[in-house]
Amino acid sequence: VRRFLRENSLSIFFGILFLASIVAQSIAGWKDFNEELLAHDDAPITYGRYLYSSEFGAALMENWQSEFLQFFFYIAATIWFLQKGSNESKKLNEAGLESDEQQRVGKWAGQSSPKLARSKGFLHSLYANSLLLVMGTIFLASWFAESVTAWTVFNADQLDHEESAVGWSKYLTTPDFWEKSLQNWQSEFLAVGTMAVFTIYLRQRGSPESKPVGAPHDETGSSG
C-alpha cells in the first residue's frame, strides 16, 4: 500500500483536490441556486436534486471542456511550434513528428514497447496519436454536455421571463453559449502561453515543469 501511494502520489494528490473542490463547489452552488429560487419566490431544492440539475452540470462541463481543449491544443501545437529558451518547447531542430528511431517505433521498438509501436498501418497511427485523439474527444464530449445543460438552464430562464424556449441548434448560436465557452478558453490560452514564456527565465528547483536552475536562459527544452 505504501508503495502504491508513493508510485501514484501525483494522480492521487490531484484526485483528492478534484474531489474536495467538486464537493465544495456543489455545496456553494446549491446554496447560491436556492438563494436565487427564494428571490424569485420559488421553492428551494434539496442538495441531492441539485447534483443532477443542469445548473450544476453546466457549471462543471463549462470548465471541463476548456481544460481538455487546452491540452488538445498544447499537445498538438508543441509537435510543430517552438519557443526558444522554454522548457515547454522541444529543441529547435526537433520540430515535427521526429524519426522512427527517436520515437522507438517499427524496427526500433524495444522488448517492452507497446505492441502497436512495432506494427504498421491504421492501428499504429491511431495509437501514435492516441493522446491527442482522446483529449480532443473528451473536449468535444464535454463541450456537448455543456451545450445541453446550459441550453436547459437558458430555456428555464427564458420561461421565467415569459420568453419562448429555443431549440438546441438555435442555442448554439446564442451569445450566452459562446460567452460561456470563450471566457474559459481565453484564460486557458493565456495560462499555457505564460508557461511557455515564463519557463525561459524563471525556475523551480526540482520540478520537471522547469529547466534546471542553472540552465542558461536560451537553452530550450532541457528537461522535456
Binding site: 502504491f4 440539475s53 464530449a141
Partner: peptide, 30 residues
C-alpha cells in the same frame, strides 16, 4: 513490475461517467 493501470482506469471512469451523466441531465432537461 507494479501495475500502472489503476489510476489510469480510475480517471477514465470518473471522466466518462461525468460526461455521460451530465449529457443525459441536459438532454432530459433536468
Amino acid at each position: 513490475m507494479a501495475p500502472v493501470r489503476t489510476m489510469f482506469v480510475l480517471y477514465v471512469v470518473v471522466i466518462v461517467t461525468g460526461l455521460v451523466f451530465y449529457s443525459a441531465v441536459g438532454i432530459l432537461h433536468k
